[in-house]
Simulated scan of single mutants.
Amino acid sequence: MRLMIQFCKGLFLLLLISPSLSAQKNKFKVIAFFTGKNDQAHISYVREANQWFPKQALKYHFTYDTTSNWNNMNPQFLSNYQVVLFLDTRPEKPEQRNAFENYMKNGGAWMGFHFSAFALAKSTYPNNWDWYHEQFLGSGGYGSNTWRPTSAVLRVEQSKHPLVKGLPHTFKSAPNEWYRWQNDLRKNPDIDILLAIDSSSFPLGTGPKAHEIWHSGYYPVVWTNKKYRMLYVNMGHNDIDYEHNSTKELSFTFGNEVQNKLITNALLWLGGKRTTY
């Protein structure tokens, strides 16, 4: 009888402990850097992201922290985190850039959204960080964009990659401002393009300027660099009621379940053991 009681107690304790062990197994820490100023569409996206990611953190047992202080881009601070997110901008100071480059070269993981890859000569964000734009992202500087923010049909380019597991071959995205880049990523052997704009999207954009409407071409929107634990996602620009000088939000990036699945897949992939395919 005493043995049976001890067995039942042991079983009860095991049942209590098992969920916490499972949670710890998936545990990793994410830090999201953001600026959240100037462009209302980017401010809207950052606010939305900082509401959506904590919900995923609870569901999938990881920690999600945020900072708008880019001076935290230093070795000591970064050592506390397994995944870094750039929600909108990028580090600008040389010491911040060196810290991020070393973090990535020593096994850190990163996911960047939309404006985090922007670089244009004689702008607030000049093309003056060769490692980041030419080697790490591979895209080079900004070329042009569609306007206004519109949905696109996106096509999976690497169906066996774990990040697109469970995604349909094509799907309609949330509205977004889409970027064209200076470099052709298809010519870079280090780059795996995961999603591109499908030709059924054309014409893409509404203008009013003619160059803001795309009628043809190849436009990658999600890719990874095989030399690093990283993913770039072009989405991250909500539609705003610009015409009426209003801050009213007309679309939301995280209102699209297929996109959400991709981002969730990416976080779990970056935060866990990297698998081959």
Rank of each mutant, 00 (worst) to 15 (best):
C8T: 12
L11W: 10
A152F: 00
F171D: 00
G255C: 06
E92I: 08
L194T: 04
S173V: 01
I31C: 07
G271P: 05
N80Q: 13
Y125F: 11
T247N: 12
Y218N: 09
L3Q: 08
L185P: 00
G10K: 10
D39I: 11
L58F: 10
W70P: 06
Q76D: 15
P94C: 04
F7S: 09
P189R: 03
S79W: 05
P220N: 05
F100T: 08
Y179E: 02
L231V: 12
L163R: 01
Y64T: 01
D65A: 11
N245F: 13
L204I: 11
V222E: 02
T35Y: 12
E157Y: 00
I43K: 04
T275A: 13
D198C: 09
G143W: 06
L185T: 02
L13C: 12
T89G: 08
T150Y: 03
C8L: 14
M1Y: 09
D184K: 15
W178E: 00
S68A: 14
N72I: 05
E212L: 07
T170W: 13
A196R: 07
H215Y: 05
I240P: 00
S200F: 05
I197T: 10
K37D: 09
T146L: 03
Y242N: 14
D190C: 00
K37F: 04
Y64G: 01
G107Q: 07
K160T: 14
N128D: 15
L231G: 01
N225H: 15
I197V: 15
L195F: 08
K165D: 10
Y219D: 01
H237Y: 06
F115M: 13
Y232S: 08
F53K: 08
M104Y: 06
H169N: 14
E92S: 14
N38D: 11
T264I: 15
P208W: 05
Y45F: 15
D184A: 13
G207S: 13
T63A: 14
S18G: 09
E257H: 13
R274V: 15
N38P: 02
A117K: 03
Y81L: 06
G217V: 13
D65F: 09
K165V: 08
G143A: 14
W147I: 07
T264N: 02
L154D: 00
A117Y: 05
L16N: 04
D239S: 15
F113V: 11
E134H: 14
F34V: 02
S68I: 06
Y60A: 00
Q6V: 13
N98Y: 09
K273D: 00
K59P: 06
A266R: 06
P203E: 03
Q6S: 12
N69M: 10
F77P: 01
Q182T: 02
L120I: 02
Y179Q: 03
P203I: 08
V46M: 04
H133C: 08
S79R: 11
Y242C: 10
D39V: 08
F118L: 05
L154R: 03
G141M: 02
Q56N: 06
Y132D: 02
I193R: 01
P94S: 07
M1T: 12
E249W: 07
E48W: 03
S20G: 05
V164C: 01
A117V: 06
P149H: 06
L163W: 01
L87C: 09
L270G: 11
S139N: 15
S251Q: 04
K261L: 07
P75I: 07
G166L: 03
E92N: 12
P19C: 08
S216R: 03
K187H: 05
G36H: 09
Y219N: 05
T146E: 00
N50F: 03
I263H: 01
S216I: 09
F77L: 02
Q56R: 13
